[in-house]
Amino acid sequence: MPQFIGMTKAAGATGLFDLNLVSSTLGDQLAMLHAAQADGLPVKRVELGNELWAWQYRGLFADGAVYARVANTWIATLHREFPGVEIAVPVNDPTSAKGPRGKLWNKELFATIRGADAAALHVYLQAADSTPAEVATAPLTQWSAALRRITPSLPTNIPIWVTEWNYTPAEAQQPLPWARAIGGAELAVRMVEDPRVDLADFHDLVGFVGSSYAAIRAISTNGSSAGPFRYYLTAAGRMLQLLVGTLSGCQSVQAVGTSSVTRHATAPQLVGVACREPAPVRVMVINPTSKSVLVNTTAIVGRATHVVTSVSTIATSSSDAAPAGVRARSSGGVVRVPPWGLLTLES
Results as ranks from 00 to 15, higher is better:
L125D: 01
T163P: 13
E164R: 07
A120P: 13
D129T: 08
A146T: 14
I150A: 01
Q126S: 09
A133C: 09
S153Q: 10
L147A: 06
A118G: 02
D129C: 02
W143S: 01
A138I: 00
P155V: 11
A138H: 00
L121I: 06
R148N: 09
V135A: 15
P132T: 04
V123G: 02
R114I: 06
L140A: 08
T168Q: 10
L140W: 05
A128P: 13
I113L: 08
Q126V: 13
L125A: 09
A136W: 06
S144I: 09
S130K: 09
S153K: 10
A136H: 06
W165M: 14
A119M: 02
T151K: 09
R148Q: 12
R148W: 03
S130D: 10
A116K: 13
A127P: 05
A116R: 11
T156A: 15
T131K: 01
P159G: 04
A138N: 13
P159A: 00
V123P: 00
P152Q: 03
S153W: 11
A170F: 06
E134Q: 15
A170E: 15
T141E: 15
I160V: 12
L140I: 14
A146V: 04
V162K: 05
V162H: 01
P155T: 14
T141M: 05
Q142N: 06
P169L: 04
L125Q: 03
A116S: 12
V162Q: 03
D117Q: 11
T163K: 10
S130Y: 00
I158R: 13
P132D: 10
P132Q: 08
L154T: 01
I158G: 15
W143D: 03
T131P: 12
I150W: 02
A170T: 12
N166L: 07
D129S: 10
V123M: 13
L140M: 13
D117C: 15
A136Q: 02
N166R: 04
R148H: 08
I150Y: 05
P169S: 04
A138P: 11
L147N: 10
T137F: 05
R149E: 11
A127C: 04
A128H: 08
P139E: 02
A118K: 00
W161Q: 05
R114H: 13
R148D: 11
I150E: 07
Y124C: 00
H122D: 04
T131V: 14
A116H: 07
E164M: 07
Q126K: 12
T151L: 11
L140Y: 08
P132R: 06
I150S: 03
A138T: 03
